[in-house]
C-alpha cells in the first residue's frame, strides 16, 4: 500500500489517475482533489503561459512536513498527495494537485484548504507570468524569512 504522504515536484502533466491511485484506501469514504490551473488573466493583464520554478529537494521536504501536520491535526488515517508541476505551462494546464482521502468528508475539506494555504506561504515555488503582449514578470509572493 502506498505511503500516507506523497509530495513531489514533477515536470510532466498531472493526471487524475496518478492521484487516485495514490489515494486508494478501502477505509476511506471521501476523496477530495484540488486542482491549481493556469488562468488567462492576472491583475488585468492577459496571460498566455506561466513558468513554474521550484527548489525540488526543499519543496518535497515542505510537502512532507505539511502532510505530517495534516495527519496530526485531522487523523493518522488520512492520505495526502501533493504534486506540483514545474516548467512552462499554458493557460488551462494544471500546475498543482492536492489530493486528500479520509473516512469522512469533513476532514478532507479542512485538510485540503489547510494544505493549499500553507503551500502558498511555505513551499519554495515561484512563477513567472508570460503575457499576451510579450512581456514576462516574476510574481512577488510570501517571504520565507522568519520575522
Amino acid at each position: 500500500m502506498a505511503s500516507r504522504i506523497v509530495g513531489k515536484v514533477v515536470s510532466g502533466p498531472l493526471t487524475h489517475e496518478q492521484v487516485i491511485e495514490l489515494l486508494d484506501d478501502p477505509t476511506h469514504g471521501a476523496q477530495l482533489l484540488f486542482w491549481g490551473i493556469v488562468r488567462n488573466l492576472n491583475d488585468g493583464r492577459s496571460v498566455e503561459a506561466v513558468t513554474y520554478d521550484a527548489h525540488a529537494p526543499l519543496c518535497e521536504r515542505v510537502f512532507e512536513e505539511l502532510g505530517t501536520e495534516v495527519l496530526a491535526k485531522w487523523g493518522e488515517g488520512l492520505r495526502i498527495v501533493i504534486l506540483h508541476r514545474v516548467g512552462r505551462l499554458k493557460v488551462g494546464e494544471a500546475s498543482l494537485v492536492i489530493g486528500v482521502g479520509s473516512a469522512h468528508r469533513d476532514e478532507s475539506y479542512q485538510a485540503s484548504r489547510y494544505l493549499i494555504e500553507e503551500i502558498k506561504k511555505r513551499a519554495p515555488v515561484w512563477k513567472q507570468e508570460h503575457y499576451v503582449d510579450g512581456d514576462s514578470e516574476w510574481i512577488r509572493g510570501h517571504s520565507l524569512a522568519k520575522r
Binding site: L96, K120, P124, V125, W126, G141, H142
Partner: peptide, 10 residues
C-alpha cells in the same frame, strides 16, 4: 546553497 526569493506556488 540556494537563494530563495518570496514564494508563490499553487
Amino acid at each position: 546553497l540556494a537563494i530563495l526569493p518570496p514564494v508563490c506556488g499553487g
